[in-house]
């Protein structure tokens, strides 16, 4: 044991290579007078040399092979991120399309889960039990008829277009549709329809202004 805290600390500093020449001299002068500190220093020095003398080990010869055989896939940044950085406008467009379609999908999902909805015809019969909308014989629908989530049986007459979303149009032999019959049952088709309608409306609205 070092006789004093101060010397003990100095020995540590000396072994860490942090003592100035003057301090070193002072410490070694102290060793001359104090055999306990001198012994303490000698033992520590010997310890360090022993530890340093341990031979350096080599890794087992097959280690590199073993590692290479077990190589996992690297956590790379996904490719599209790099692509996005190189084509920012395309990336923005892609995000726009993604957001648009997801909002449309949510509208679609809201509607397809719901009940029969009829737009345009006042004098049609709605059969909720069978999921049917019937244009009875002799009745005339002035303008367009749009039905969602239901079959449509046309026995009478529709003067405009008939649009069936998520359903089935059925035209009886006596029935008559003056305009187009459109059958939309895929989300994508519906989206197309929706966009078409939207642009047409926007366009008409523009011309009206």
């Amino acid at each position: 044991m070092a006789c004093q805290k101060k010397e003990e600390k100095q020995i540590d500093q000396y072994l860490d290579g942090e003592l100035s020449a003057a301090e070193r001299k002072e410490l070694f002068a102290h060793f001359e007078k104090c055999p306990a500190c001198a012994a303490h220093y000698r033992e520590l020095n010997k310890t360090v040399m022993f530890v340093q003398s341990t031979s350096h080990l080599e890794a087992p010869p097959r280690m590199t092979d073993q590692i290479m055989q077990n190589l996992p896939s690297r956590k790379k940044k996904p490719g599209w991120r790099k692509w996005g950085r190189r084509h920012p406008i395309m990336a923005a467009a892609a995000i726009f399309v993604l957001l648009m379609s997801s909002s449309m999908m949510s509208i679609w999902n809201d509607q397809s889960a719901g009940q029969i909805a009829v737009a345009g015809g006042e004098n049609v019969e709605v059969d909720h039990e069978h999921g049917k909308v019937i244009v009875p014989e002799g009745e005339v629908v002035r303008g367009d008829l749009m039905v969602r989530n239901g079959e449509v049986e046309v026995h009478g007459e529709i003067q405009g277009d008939l649009t069936v979303i998520n359903g089935e149009p059925y035209l009886a032999s006596a029935g008559h549709v003056a305009g187009d019959i459109e059958d939309v049952d895929q989300a994508l088709e519906w989206m197309w329809y929706y966009t078409k309608k939207f642009t047409t409306e926007a366009f008409t609205w523009n011309t009206e202004e």
Partner: peptide
């Protein structure tokens, strides 16, 4: 790496295992 692992764990089997895992982690990350 093997040397550190061996001196730390004190056994060659574990040292190999640790060294291998260290390299695999370095590669993955």
């Amino acid at each position: 790496v093997y040397q550190i692992a061996y001196r730390m764990t004190g056994n060659s089997y574990e040292a190999q295992d640790v060294a291998q895992e260290a390299f695999l982690r370095a590669y993955a990350n």
